[in-house]
Design a protein around this nucleic acid. Sequence first.
DNA 1: GTGGTCACG
DNA 2: ACGTACGTGACCACT
Length: 588
Amino acid sequence: MLGFSLAYNDKCGAYIDTDCFDETTEALLQELFTKKIVVFHNAKFDMAFFEYHFGFKFPRFEDTMLLHYLIDENPGGHGLKQLTLKFTPFGDYEKPMYEWIDNYRKEHGILKDQFNWGDIPFDVMKTYAAMDALATFLLYEKFIKIKQNPKLLWVYENILIPGTRFLIDTQDNGVPFDKKRLYVAQEAMQNDIDEAIAALYENEKVRRFEELNGKSFNPNSTVQLRSLLFDYLGLNPTGKKTGTGADSTDAEVLKELALQSDVPQRILDIRQKSKIKNTYLDKIIPQLDRDSRLRTGFNLHGTTSGRLSSSGKLNMQQLPRDNPTVKGCIKAAPGHKIVAMDLTTAEVYVAAILAKDEALMDVFKSGGNFHSTIAHKVFNLPCEVEEVAELYPDRRQAAKAVTFGIMYGAGPAKISEQVTKDSGKVFTKQEAAETINDYFKTFHKLRKWIDDNQKFIEHNGFIYSYYGRKRRLPNVASSDAGIRSHSIRSGLNFLVQSAASDINLLGAIDMGAYIKANNMKSRIFALVHDSILAEVPEEEIDHYCEKLLHFVQMDRGLTIPGAPVGCDFEIDEDYSMGKFTKMYGTDV
DNA sequence: GTGGTCACG
DNA sequence: ACGTACGTGACCACT
């Protein structure tokens, strides 16, 4: 039996889960919900639950969690509990219920995960549920003032509220996985791990290290690995340290140490394969729904920049990009395809427009290869743009690193490090400094825009994005110069990251609404910052792509006339775009 | 719970 | 003289 509690007045109502209603109350409630604004704390969760289980519709709703996100964008503080403690006199109202739960679990020896919330007696639950509703209402009355800020109001009404609807559908659509492929991949990965471990133990020194310690060596333990590499094997540390000052054993270090011993490469192998098996395959398989889809979370309030975050059963925003194993298991149903749309260099596109830098906008207008065109301009290369990749690959690489580095506020040191890593050739700090200098000579309006905005951030301690999101940076007043400059870089990056991801999100929201309004069968199942993933029936592919392109490139104020933001479409049976079958054979 | 590492844009 | 690239989430070992 499911139910809820409700706090109600003339302006709004708010509810929480509880027990018991009959058809009469159901009809009354539906009438109420239709006429009044219903306030949720996290509508994506509770409203979706109600609509799914009881068939209720909520034509108008508010969300105190999202209102609070507008008041303070820093993640981690948006829970009902925390906010009640901070903004109302009833901060500890949940205590009696949790005490009851603790006692009950102790008496019956029940583990946390196995506790059934339905066992809570009505008398205990009712106070908690009623207080949840009351707290939500009190928060609403406080938070609604934020609507007096027209920029934040625009974000709320045009991104967060419609975004909630969109994400409910996106999460409900679920990610289509192919079970057979998951099992094939799981087994293949386990075999690879076994082989890699066996290879590690071929090294006699590893076996002796183990004997010496009297316990088996765990390659996943950084402490044990450090001891093996630096104390026992006597390899020379690279100088790279962890946050706490210990010698690092991360991938970069291990790659360098591989010149001195065969052990580091084995560890790299084991780590990479364990990661894929533990974090992805083993995690996905037991959580699939009966329709072989995985329903995970996308959150509107998880980042300071306005990007989405993903969490829960699987973080869809960090699937391995280049290894086809996991992506290949995301496979469209028969008669369907996976359609993956990507924005191309969206953040730079946004920067060009915001800075009103004609030279940079011209790069987008010219339509050639982006980084080649940039290199051609910055270094005045005596060849055609099409020849840059072949004739001046180093220059192209440097220009690319500078382009991205600038978006983050990187200095010569970081740029030189990055180019050296990417190209495998030493690129000095001085070369980096010269390149940055050349770059800004070519794109001088961009430099001025960066300078102006950094000054604004430093002076005001906040900044607004193009679409009206606010980034508060009180640490610009810190006495610590490192913290201060980090705040300023953050604020600058916010301007481009936020607007770019909003272009993607607004496009997806409109596409989602269009799909519904036109009874299309296409199903958007994930957003990854600047891409939109969907499972699309074959006969709908042209229609879907055409409309999605339209909605993403639609002029929402951030468009270069004649050169809308670039969109890449990839279409195949699975999300690895065919690479999975090549790797594992054509039968799966 | 923290630190280290690694997955993504 | 020094630090110095933005934004995330998940898993593992260890305390």
